[in-house]
Amino acid sequence: MLHRPKTLLCFSLALAFGVSLLAPQLNPYHLDVLLTIGINIVLAVSLNLVNGYTGQFSLGHAGFMAVGAYASAAFTLFAAPRWFPDANFLVTSACFFVALLLGGLASAGAGVIVGAPSLRLKGDYLAIVTLGFGEIIRVIFRNVDALGGALGLNGIPFHTNFFWVSFWGLITIYMVLALVNSSFGRGFLAVRDDEIAAEAMGINTTQYKIIAFVVSAFFAGIAGGLYAHLKSSIDPKGFDFMRSIEIVVMVILGGMANTRGVIMAAVILTLLPEILCPIAEYRMVIYSLLLIILMLTRPQGLFSFRIRPHPSHSA
């Protein structure tokens, strides 16, 4: 898949654009589900870089998502209308692109801060610290009146459409796969397998962990921006740690460090609650039961049949 990555990427983007022209034919509910799936793919694939490939245990992805959502929504709501009062379609799209980038960058900044403790912590401890960071981020947003406090931001324009979601989805998948399938990127896997041996081979584990956190946070921020402009309103409650856990579950069920599996898991786990909708009362009960049963019966993930392309040296 990575032989001619740039060609492939351009091709898929063109395809995505083509398909997005058909999107208006879909009914709004289906479109909404489809876009949510796309956003979840961005989230899960990016988290997979930290949790799957680098073996760090982050439980704070929703926090990064929140940073991205707030930053991009603030740009769209407060900055864009002032600078471009009478915007046409192109200008609006460009503004949205900039808003998303801003969200991603803000989130990447947060990634540096959260990644820093990971240099000294492992396993459960890291999990709980990243979880803590996610909660701290939420508490901070709750206290910033300019960002709506506990009520959050409302009336964010519906800019997120099929094109943008597939665009960012593809970029995320490409970036993570291209990174990991390189001599430099094999270092992430080495850090995951054995940190002490990795250091002994001259690998700066600190640098790798920070890169993983920053790249992963960047895309979580993008996903947050897409989410904000899909739902039109955001509040700190929507980014609690259950959100992070949902994403972690996608990564684990996908089979850790298996991007294809993670994408499938993101699709399935987004659809599952929708399918269970008719029995709305019990759907989360069933969801959690399924989670337990899956963990007990397939601890290696749902899709661990290893179809990951081999980074062959002839590439």
């Binding site: 969801y287 039961l289 989670l291 007990l296 601890p299």
Partner: peptide, 27 residues
């Protein structure tokens, strides 16, 4: 049943149990 498998799995199972208890009470 998960003793000896990866910590991550056990942690997620624990989270599953936690969600199960919470949501069953919420019903």
């Amino acid at each position: 049943p998960l003793r000896g498998s990866s910590k991550l799995n056990v942690l997620i199972t624990a989270i599953g149990v936690s969600m199960f208890l919470e949501y069953s009470f919420q019903v």
